[in-house]
């Protein structure tokens, strides 16, 4: 018995595989999903998503979105998601710095832009955290 996990972002289908467990960061804290979980619809926080398959754990950095558990299928809908191996630490650091500078420089930019930058900063932070945690 296994879960079918699918992570979809507006750009691509990031992850699609059968897994044993998945741990999702939600607004109320982390939720671990095992096969046979009750139907669930929840909001995702920026954070790390853990996937375990055959004893091997993979980490993914994920930004806000939604997750749905229905039967043995888990669908994750996120603005951004990236596998830990694919995170380029230097690129993320640079992006984080740029976004922070922009945030600091312009206080009166339009709220949407501000929101976008903030989310970028948080997502970058999460990516760095995920990348560095295993060292």
């Amino acid at each position: 018995m296994a879960l079918t996990l699918e992570i979809v972002t507006p750009e691509a289908r990031v992850y699609s595989d059968t897994v044993d467990t998945v741990v999702i960061p939600t607004l109320d804290g982390e939720v671990g999903i095992l096969p046979g979980h009750i139907a669930l619809l929840t909001q995702i926080e920026h954070g790390e998503l853990r996937v375990t398959k055959n004893g091997v754990t993979q980490w993914l950095a994920i930004s806000g979105g939604f997750a749905e558990v229905e039967g043995d299928r888990v669908h994750v809908l996120a603005e951004n998601a990236i596998n830990e191996e694919k995170i380029d630490e230097h690129a993320v650091e640079a992006a984080l710095k740029r976004a922070e500078e922009q945030l600091a420089a312009a206080r009166d930019i339009d709220p949407q832009q501000y929101e976008h930058l903030q989310s970028l900063v948080r997502y970058s932070g999460v990516q760095l955290a995920v990348k560095r945690r295993r060292r």
Binding site: T26, L27, D28, V31, I38, A39, L40, L41, T42, Q43, F66, E70, G71, R73
Partner: peptide
């Protein structure tokens, strides 16, 4: 994708209204 029979129960976190509204 094959629809599972609609279960009468579904858990919403934090709750249905919040999820719906976002």
């Amino acid at each position: 994708v094959k629809e599972t029979p609609a279960e009468s129960q579904m858990l919403f976190e934090p709750d249905a209204k919040v999820v719906l509204e976002s």
